[in-house]
Simulated scan of single mutants.
Amino acid sequence: MKINHLTAAEENFMKLFWKLNSFYLKDIMEQHPEPKPHQNTVSTYLKILVEKGYLSTTKEGRIFKYSVLVPIEEYKRFLLKELSHHFFNDSGKEVLELLLSEKLITQDDLKGYFDLKIEIKPVKNEAPTFEYAEEILNPKKEKKKGKDKDKEKKKKKKKD
């Protein structure tokens, strides 16, 4: 089933509809928080949501009974996939990194949810080597090697 995008107003109505699951127009008018919209406005949104495939209708005498077709969990998955696709290059890792950095989820949450043993250990850097510093600070060692090589070259030349 293809899910279509909802406007903010349609989403607000759907939040109420998801709670009711199956309802009549009069139920919406009773349950909607203040300020209550006009009945014609609610009817218009019901019609739109039926066309978009979020609601179905059953005629009972002269009135319609509405039922939710798209569960809230399915809509949440749709929104998360859309968000991931448009802003995170379809990378769940990037989404998770943002959730962690914004402290919307903790490592303990992840451990409990996935039942994984995740431990973040500080990176141990090896002691830096100062090869060039050694050459500069201890030039005598280098010079000796150089002098020894020069002596060996001179000896070889004399033999030839």
Rank of each mutant, 00 (worst) to 15 (best):
14 M>D: 00
16 L>K: 01
17 F>R: 01
17 F>Q: 01
18 W>V: 12
19 K>V: 12
20 L>S: 08
21 N>C: 13
22 S>L: 04
22 S>N: 04
23 F>W: 05
23 F>D: 05
26 K>V: 11
26 K>G: 09
26 K>E: 13
27 D>P: 06
27 D>I: 11
28 I>Y: 01
30 E>G: 07
30 E>A: 12
32 H>F: 10
33 P>H: 08
34 E>Q: 08
34 E>D: 05
36 K>T: 12
38 H>M: 02
39 Q>M: 07
39 Q>C: 10
40 N>Q: 14
40 N>Y: 07
43 S>I: 00
43 S>P: 00
43 S>A: 02
44 T>G: 09
44 T>L: 14
45 Y>Q: 01
45 Y>N: 02
47 K>W: 09
48 I>S: 00
48 I>F: 06
48 I>G: 05
49 L>Q: 00
50 V>C: 00
51 E>F: 05
51 E>S: 15
52 K>F: 02
54 Y>T: 05
54 Y>H: 07
54 Y>K: 04
55 L>W: 00
57 T>G: 00
58 T>N: 09
58 T>G: 03
60 E>N: 15
61 G>T: 06
62 R>N: 10
62 R>T: 11
63 I>T: 14
64 F>E: 08
64 F>A: 11
66 Y>N: 01
67 S>T: 14
67 S>P: 08
68 V>D: 04
70 V>S: 03
70 V>N: 04
70 V>E: 00
71 P>F: 02
72 I>A: 06
72 I>W: 04
72 I>T: 09
75 Y>N: 02
76 K>F: 09
76 K>Q: 08
77 R>P: 00
78 F>P: 01
79 L>F: 04
79 L>P: 03
79 L>E: 00
80 L>I: 09
80 L>V: 12
81 K>Q: 03
81 K>F: 04
82 E>S: 13
82 E>N: 11
83 L>E: 11
84 S>D: 13
85 H>F: 15
88 F>H: 02
88 F>N: 01
88 F>S: 00
88 F>W: 00
89 N>P: 05
92 G>H: 10
94 E>T: 11
94 E>Y: 08
95 V>P: 02
96 L>M: 11
97 E>A: 15
97 E>P: 06
101 S>M: 12
101 S>T: 11
103 K>E: 13
104 L>M: 12
104 L>R: 05
106 T>S: 10
107 Q>L: 15
107 Q>F: 15
108 D>S: 02
108 D>T: 15
109 D>E: 09
110 L>G: 01
110 L>Q: 02
113 Y>S: 13
113 Y>M: 12
113 Y>W: 05
114 F>R: 06
114 F>C: 08
116 L>I: 05
117 K>D: 12
117 K>H: 13
117 K>E: 12
119 E>P: 07
120 I>S: 07
121 K>Q: 11
123 V>E: 13
123 V>G: 10
123 V>Y: 09
124 K>T: 12
124 K>Q: 13
125 N>F: 12
126 E>C: 03
127 A>F: 13
128 P>C: 14
130 F>Q: 07
130 F>T: 13
131 E>T: 07
132 Y>W: 09
134 E>R: 09
134 E>M: 10
135 E>L: 15
138 N>K: 05
138 N>V: 12
139 P>T: 04
139 P>Q: 03
140 K>E: 15
142 E>Q: 10
142 E>L: 10
